[in-house]
C-alpha cells in the first residue's frame, strides 16, 4: 500500500484536488496535505492524497552518485 512512483501534476481545481499524470494515465488526487503544489510539480500520491513533492535537485544528485559507484567497478 506504500506503492507510489512520482507523477506529474497536470491540473489543479479550486477544491484542492487535481490530476496527476503517470506516462499517460492520470489519477485524481487531493492536494490538501501538500499546500503550494503547482502544475508541473512531481508528487508522490498515496491513497488518493499527494503526500510529498519530488526534489529534482536531490534526484539528480543521487543519479550522479549512481554513476560514481558504477565507475568503481567490481569489488574483487
Amino acid at each position: 500500500m506504500c506503492l507510489a512512483v512520482p507523477g506529474k501534476v497536470v491540473s489543479l481545481e479550486s477544491n484542492g484536488t487535481g490530476k496527476v499524470d503517470y506516462l499517460g494515465t492520470t489519477v485524481l488526487a487531493n492536494f490538501s496535505l501538500l499546500p503550494g503544489v503547482k502544475v508541473g510539480d512531481w508528487v508522490i500520491v498515496h491513497a488518493g492524497f499527494a503526500i510529498s513533492r519530488l526534489d529534482q535537485k536531490e534526484a539528480r544528485r543521487t543519479l550522479k552518485l549512481f554513476k560514481e559507484l558504477e565507475k568503481l567497478g567490481p569489488a574483487d
Binding site: A4, V5, Y22, L23, G24, T25, V45
Partner: peptide
C-alpha cells in the same frame, strides 16, 4: 506500452 507502465505503477 507506456500508458500501461504508468497505470501499473499506481495500482501496484
Amino acid at each position: 506500452s507506456r500508458a500501461l507502465k504508468g497505470a501499473i505503477e499506481i495500482l501496484g
